[in-house]
Each structure stands twice: as C-alpha cells, then as structure tokens.
Amino acid sequence: MEESPLHPFELHDWIPISLGGLDISINKAVVMMWVVVSLVTVLMVMAGSARKLVPGKLQSLAEMMVDFIRSMIMDTMGKEGMRFFPLIATLFLFILFCNLIGMIPGSYTVTSQIIVTAVFSFLVYGLSLVMGFLLHGVKYLGVLVPPGTPGWLVPLMIPIEIMSQVARPISLAVRLFANMTAGHVLLGVLFGMAISGGLLIGWLPFAFTIAINGLEVGIAFIQAYIFTMLTCVYLGDAFHLHGDDGHAH
C-alpha cells in the first residue's frame, strides 16, 4: 500500500536495445516522446493544410500559437531573431505538449527527467555561444566585463560573470525539471492522502488534488513559456553584445 511518491518517475526498459555499448532501450519516456512528436506534427499539419481566409477552429488555434511565438521572438531578439523561429517554435510546442500530456493520469511527463531538459538547455546555450563567437569573434569575451565596470573591479567581475554564465543553462534545465517533478509529487501525495483518509476526511485532500490539478495545467503553460522566452533572451544576448542590461547603457 505504501509507495514512494517518486515511484511514478522510475523508468523501466520495455525493449532493451544496446548499440555498441550505448543504451538506447525503449522505455515509457521514449514512447511518450514519440507520441508528443507525432501529435504536434499531425495537429500542425492538419491546421496548416486548410489555409482558409476565414480560419476554422484548429487553424485559428495554430495561428494564435504562431503569433504568440513570433511576438515573443520580436520582443526579445528583434527582427533578426526570426531565423530561429523553427527552433523556438519546436521547443515551445514540444515542451508544452510534454507538460500537458503528462497531466493525463497514467501517462508520463517526459520533462520530469532532468536529462531531457538538460539536453535542451545545453543545446540552446551552446548555440548562443557559437552564434556569439561567430558574430563578434574574440570580442564576444567582452560579455565577461559588463560596461561601466571600474578598472580595479575587473579581476573580481570576471569570475562572477563566468559563474553567472555557467549558471544559465543549469537554471534553465533545473527550473523545468523541478517544477514538473514537484507538481506531480505533490499531486501524488495529496491523492494518496485522499485514498487513505477515507470518506470522513479524505474529501479535503481530494478537493486540493482537483484544485492543484488546475494549477498544474497553468504551470505547464508557464514553464513552456519561460523556457522558450529565456531561449530567446540568451540567443538575443549573442546578437546584441551588452544588450543584456536593457536600456541602461
């Protein structure tokens, strides 16, 4: 009866595959990723195939989503950021659908595995580094010395800035992973209390389970939004050297 609240996050190999020592076994998370990818693809292709002047339900939903992502890119990166539109739209839709499909009881939240979020965040951060060095050359190292730093502070600022740069992909990965995991653990604990509490008091945690379920759907949206927004911000920093401090300089 007693079960660890972390039990639902354990993964077991369904079809063990080993390719030259590399473990590429099929498990629940992999299957869920396939489901998400095919769902997003089918939905977007269906929405894009009609192309009516007066959009139907699905088409207007897709147009809203594309418009939302475009305004996010325009706000943070400006016009030249539009060349990253495919990457950012893919990230947003994948994370959003992973989060939302994870809310269905019995399914699996792929984004509650830190390796998934870490791959995305290190990919994004690596891309921003490559872009920065391609565009600015060695001058890109200037991000380590923010403008307006007095000369005697430079030896102190460089280690601090290195740390705040290294912290970026880590906070990006940990934020998404921790929010999804914590939400599902909370739901599991509350629902366990509702079952073990019986009719007399069990209705109270059950009501909380329903309320927090609603909150979790909101968090699923917000976390997908934040992940992609920060992706835009980091990529935008690579374009605009020292644009980070906003309009102050």
Partner: peptide
C-alpha cells in the same frame, strides 16, 4: 517570479 528563484539557486 518563477525565474528569479532558480536564477539565485543555480549560481
């Protein structure tokens, strides 16, 4: 709001 908490801890 969600951003700032993790930013502090990650660094």
């Amino acid at each position: 709001a969600v951003r700032i908490g993790t930013d502090l801890v990650a660094a």
